[in-house]
């Protein structure tokens, strides 16, 4: 590992200033992804600005009923928070289905959103990877890509985003709050992560030096039936092959509101807008759900060895929708 300076920031201003003062700096949250990548030589920061002790470690209810989650709240505490369990259960379930108890105790909300892909070529300096080294090629496209994307990928990168939490946030219409050299701004969670296009080195819309300060769970999805389901190679402590976060409100026998995000299938949590449009105003039935998922997944372009993800994403999402609809109905 390359040596680096270490700065512990006490305020948000101190953090962004320390970052600006050190070209090649990285913010340090729980370190469960960054330190891992530093050991592998994938990340070589000149300085670490430790933001894990910033006073952003609270979960606060806002007057309009939304919930602001500070960027340094640990994944385990967020999953256990009574208001999250009650109001946005899909988020709690998504967090709990990720990583391990030990990792969730260390991992922060901000760091979880910005964790890098688990593509093995990205983690291996001896292999080509456009995300790690733009222009070097994509090892996975014609290589080992069983875990890779089936939607929205490009010739330059076929990686998936590994976060479970981010999938729930996308479905729940959460917002990401940022601060940086150019001031504060807010980005919707479902467009916070990018598709790779010809800039696969950029995972998200975050700008250099920007700090995530909070994630806001909106009042609009509070208390609605929501769920998260994840399929993986073993029952626990593994990344998703495919997953789905769904929020569903049925009123007067028709779908009044639906949010669907798919995980493990794209470079970002895949908000299934076409399926949502098809379902809104329709009577909730298994056939309607299947039809909606078929519409959505008609855009899929599986690679040589990951075609299984299309029927997998379809059936698991239909299953979650069916269960939620049954709950709404009775």
């Amino acid at each position: 590992m390359k040596t680096f300076d270490y700065v512990r920031a006490r305020t948000v201003e101190e953090a962004t200033a320390a970052f600006a003062a050190a070209p090649g700096a990285r913010y340090l949250g729980g370190g469960t992804n960054l330190v891992d990548l530093m050991k592998l030589g994938v990340e070589r920061p000149t300085a670490l600005v430790d933001v894990s002790r910033l006073p952003l470690d609270t979960v606060d209810e806002l007057p309009d009923g939304s919930l602001r989650v500070g960027a340094t709240v640990r994944n385990s505490d967020l999953a256990a928070h009574p208001l999250v369990r009650e109001g946005w259960p899909a988020l709690s379930r998504a967090l709990l289905s990720g990583a391990s108890g030990q990792l969730r105790n260390a991992a922060t909300t901000g760091g979880n959103l910005l964790q890098r892909t688990r593509c093995p070529y990205f983690q291996d300096l001896s292999k080509p990877c456009n995300k790690r080294e733009p222009g070097s090629g994509c090892g996975a496209r014609e290589g080992v890509h069983r875990d890779h994307a089936v939607l929205g990928h490009s010739p330059h990168c076929v990686a998936t985003h590994p976060s479970d939490m981010a999938v729930a946030l996308a479905a729940l219409d959460a917002r990401v709050e940022l601060t940086g050299p150019a001031g504060d701004r807010v980005v919707a969670a479902d467009v916070f992560h990018r598709l790779p296009g010809d800039r696969p080195e950029l995972d998200t819309e975050i700008r250099p030096g920007e700090l995530i300060t909070a994630v806001v769970l909106p009042a609009a999805t509070r208390g609605l039936p929501s769920a998260y389901r994840k399929v993986r190679d073993r029952a626990s402590y593994a990344f998703a092959l495919a997953s789905a976060a769904v929020v569903l409100r049925v009123e007067g026998g028709v779908v009044a509101r639906v949010g669907i995000a798919l995980g493990g299938v794209a470079h970002r949590p895949w908000r299934a807008r076409r399926a949502e449009e098809a379902l809104t105003g329709a009577a909730p039935s298994r056939a309607a759900f299947e039809h909606a998922l078929d519409l959505e997944l008609s855009a899929a372009e599986p690679l040589r060895d990951n075609g299984y993800k299309v029927p997998l994403a379809r059936s698991l999402t239909v299953d979650v929708l069916t269960r939620l609809a049954a709950r709404s109905a009775g």
Binding site: Y6, L28, G30, G31, T32, V35, D36, L48, S76, G101, Q102, L103, N105, A106
Partner: peptide
Amino acid sequence: RRMNSCLLL
């Protein structure tokens, strides 16, 4: 709190 000491600086 339990944590993985290999990833904590």
